[in-house]
Nucleic acid binder design. Sequence first.
DNA 1: GCAAAAGTGTTCTTGGTACACCCATGG
DNA 2: CCATGGGTGTACCAAGAACACTTTTGC
Lengths: 230, 230
Amino acid sequence: MTTRDHAQLRIAVDLAVLTVREGALQALVITRGNDPFAGRPALPGGFVRTDEDLGVAAVRELREETRLDGDDLHLEQFAVYGEPRRDPRGRVVSVAYLAIMPDLPLPVAGSDASGAAWAAVDKIRGSLAFDHDRILDDAVERARRRLELTTLATAFCPPEFTIGDLRSVYEVVWGESLDPRNFSRKVTNTEGFVEPTGAKRVPPTGRPAALYRAGPATMLNPPILRTAAA
Amino acid sequence: MTTRDHAQLRIAVDLAVLTVREGALQALVITRGNDPFAGRPALPGGFVRTDEDLGVAAVRELREETRLDGDDLHLEQFAVYGEPRRDPRGRVVSVAYLAIMPDLPLPVAGSDASGAAWAAVDKIRGSLAFDHDRILDDAVERARRRLELTTLATAFCPPEFTIGDLRSVYEVVWGESLDPRNFSRKVTNTEGFVEPTGAKRVPPTGRPAALYRAGPATMLNPPILRTAAA
DNA sequence: GCAAAAGTGTTCTTGGTACACCCATGG
DNA sequence: CCATGGGTGTACCAAGAACACTTTTGC
């Protein structure tokens, strides 16, 4: 039995915070201030405190490192990473959370001290500290599948959005283009996915688009499937 | 900061081992020998050792408590339970694994000392130790969804099985009956789901059924969806 | 030849896809 | 009146659901 020194073992939470920004899928990354991996980009996260619930720890770390309020966004546990040597400091088992939010200005903008910033997922792939590249890849794959079966896409949108906004979420996250007519029909025919607000948004040029808010449904039935489901 | 005494924190793995047996979805439960919850049924599991990978710990615990060889069965991490007071002994964060296996005689049968036994999921709901009722519920829900999108159903079957065997897996796990004709077509038309062995099995009475083995595919495209997707 | 279970064919309906047109606004 | 993006209608095709009959064995 080697069940001694548990003292070395710690639990961490890591967050893959995703948004659609400037036409690309972006993730929130911080720049590490300390070794190991000082100066390298990493996902926000940190150690769970004694007597602290995992979800609470995730919200707290997010607020501490990025000033974002976790209550406002979709937060979902999606995997655990427990390989013994994944952290050079010792045994750290990390619970990974997927967070989805609309393209809001970061509350931290200006106070660059913390180094929290958006980065296009495609650009930072391969450069993150620890095993965070893998965690981010898993998070993106999870988000892609979530769009097929759930109403998660509305979490990428502001409180009021157009069908076109919603479609561009699908297009950016999936990396493929969708037929606007068919997409519109699917969305509006799915009970509880979106509800019209009655308001309209006037674009710089072109016909005003009707605004919607997220409906009560969480699951999509029937699902909206990708053409090439991996 | 309350990041002191990590010594109290431990990582555990818990296993929801499912099979289809006697026409019902059954789970492997052990009878706890020690407090807390002595004498109560619980899911197999235990503490992860220092420097032991989570998956390795799951396989080891399964072997220790049930004599089953984890290499033979589908094993998949599906959730983490970290609520601070879920274990009266202290802070225990538990990584839950879903395991699927065919209806084999338990190697432990006879040596009832260990107390590992199959129990119908519907019968034991509400009686398990710790938060294992919730873990089991989550595991069953995960398995149900897995049947829709992956070839997991073959993991419930012995190496050679008939289309009827496979269909009864779906029927028992989903708790609904399926049209044999349509089911057969879907399965045989899905590339890589099952492969004919050429052999046949003769039932006590009736026409012999062709035998199949699991094919190379892991994802079902298109999926086989439940009628009432919760 | 009868019981029991396996296997196959057809129709109907629904949802998906592809495509073309009209609408509402700002400039 | 025109450029720009929003919204709708329709024909075609693939997949799912509902349904009945034939086949192969043991007895």
